[in-house]
Amino acid sequence: MAEKNTKGAISIKNVTKIYDPEGVNVMAVDDCSLEIKSGEVCMIVGPSGCGKTTLLNAIAGFHSITEGEIYLDNEILCGPNKPLADQGSDRIVVFQHGALFPWKTLQENVAYGPIVQKVLPKNEALDKAGGLLEEAGIGDMMKKYPGEVSSGMARRAEIVRALINNPKVLLLDEPYRAMDALTKSIMHESLLEVYDKTNVTIFFITHDLEEAIFLGDKVVVMTTRPAKTKLILDVDIPRPRNYQVLSSEKFRVLVNEAKDAVHEEAIKAFEAGERELA
């Protein structure tokens, strides 16, 4: 995990996604284009149910796209001839409600990827998993089941479970949504620490603008459904970052710059009052 990542550039070109539950077409994403450089932290901000997750699902290979193409390091993931991307360990998702297997200990969870991919024998995978959990500061917890630890611990272990596979991209779907502000701040710092170590490309969905600016290199504000990019903000706050950033002048200026755009979309989304799509 020490070497710097040079892979994981994502290129989203003119992607459109139309759902048709019960024969009524619903456009979730409309002609959305976005370039994410390798090793970049790209934060996607938008009102709930705007189609952010649709984009993540397309990259991860959970859902197909209707039009457009998505590339990973110039190789096509999905496009007109192959609407559904293959799922693979080069793009690992950390889920909104957490998806550690409750029937495996934290250590077994983390070792799962290398074991099923047969890159390491079981013992070595478990040893490596233990080591990584130790590094992440939750070594004491590794023999526990996810149901026995706090949500913060579980989420941290889930990120370790992703990183042990050396993914090109980490896809995070509002992973800290259900957490209280204090836990959230600890999670942010540990994610920044992980990022500074691995430089993995991060595609992070959130509806929290301050979180987005604090963590991201690039903040993409999406319009309400159908989603397209409304505003792209480059965050030129130097890394490594810590909590001092939050009170800096630059941070405040960036938040102000994006606030109106986010607020405008939030109002539109609220007035449309449509049910959120998965």
Partner: peptide, 8 residues
Amino acid sequence: RAAKCLGA
């Protein structure tokens, strides 16, 4: 989905 992501 998680299992598939992890290469299962």
